[in-house]
């Protein structure tokens, strides 16, 4: 019965959708090929990866071993030793719906939290259907030793204080929010929902600071002569990563110091103070399979850094990695 009720209940909503434009697709062959192909390809990929690992030392001092140019419509992939795709470049999405966090309690939580604190909160009769939500108040660390201590605390590789003359300026680490299956999540939920059930009418927000030890992302900024570079590390934790290639950008895969990196070149016109400005810069990505971390190294601000300099920076970085 309920199914038929929805037709009328959402009639107006359906009128606002051009239903005739939902196209028909047929992906059966592609799905079956992936199912069949993944098991066939896997051994070959393992051999290749082992080979490249063994040769990594020989390539350590070579800046560029191989260059492969990719059109933006093609995929660049980083695979792990089992052959599974861990990071994948995907076509640009120019027509998607964008997520806008909508939560009127967020501001209250931010006011409650101190920099570097992770806050778990529970909203009575909230949208998360009885679940916890989390907010983190970022902390910008300008002390290199403090950042290193934090990196060790969360089990992250430590960073160099300088790379190719660029000196550490500041860093930020953001936490991985507790998964629903963890005791920490369950205990906190029990505590906060218990408070909510005993609270007076009208009281809806219940929160507490929770300790965290797992990092989700790390950003570190380095500068030299007015130019700065940013390194971003994304701790994937077994998650697959998709990177959207923006229209007009070009990407190419290279091997530097034994690591496959992707150099991305951005050329785009943007509006700055009402004037069109041509934006041009490059950034690099690579995947650290051993630690399951996806890195981005970019020209953060200031004078532009040439492609060759970016590649040298990456090489220096990869040789210094902890």
């Amino acid at each position: 019965m309920e199914r038929f009720e929805t037709s009328d209940e959402y009639r107006g909503l359906k009128l606002a959708v051009h239903t005739s434009q939902v196209p028909e697709i047929d992906v059966a062959e592609k799905v079956m090929a992936r199912i069949a192909g993944s098991s066939r390809r896997r051994p070959a990929v393992i051999r290749t990866m082992r080979g490249s690992t063994a040769l990594a030392g020989l390539f350590a001092l070579l800046l560029v071993v191989s260059v492969t140019a990719y059109a933006t419509s093609e995929y660049i992939q980083f695979r792990d030793k089992s052959g599974a795709v861990r990071v994948e470049y995907v076509p640009p999405n120019t027509s998607r719906i964008v997520d806008i966090p909508y939560n009127k309690f967020t501001a209250q939580v931010h006011e409650f939290a101190k920099p570097g604190e992770l806050v778990a909160y529970f909203v009575k009769d909230g949208d998360e259907a009885g679940g916890l939500q989390f907010e983190f108040k970022p902390e910008r660390m300008t002390s290199f030793s403090k950042l290193q201590d934090e990196l060790r605390r969360v089990g992250s590789p430590v960073l160099p204080q300088a790379v190719s003359g660029f000196q550490f300026e500041y860093g930020e680490i953001r936490p991985h929010y507790p998964d629903k299956e963890t005791p920490q999540y369950r205990d906190t939920l029990k505590e906060l929902s218990g408070l909510a059930s005993r609270a007076a009418d009208g009281e809806r927000l219940f929160m507490k600071t929770v300790p965290w030890t797992d990092a989700a992302t790390l950003v570190a900024i380095y500068s030299k002569d007015g130019a700065s570079i940013g390194l971003h590390a994304h701790f994937l934790r077994g998650m697959e990563m998709y990177v959207e290639l923006q229209e007009g950008n070009t990407s190419e895969k290279r091997t530097i110091a034994g690591t496959e990196v992707v150099y991305n070149e951005v050329k785009r016109q943007i509006a700055a103070e009402g004037r069109p400005v041509q934006l041009e810069y490059g950034y690099l990505n690579w995947y650290d399979e051993e630690r399951d971390i996806y890195y981005t190294l970019t020209n953060h601000k200031g004078p532009g850094i040439s492609k060759e300099e970016m590649l040298r920076l990456a090489e220096d970085w990869l040789e210094k990695k902890g």
Partner: peptide, 11 residues
């Protein structure tokens, strides 16, 4: 991430 690293590119 891209906004943090290069704010002006997120237009």
């Amino acid at each position: 991430v891209m906004k943090m690293l290069r704010p002006e590119t997120v237009t």
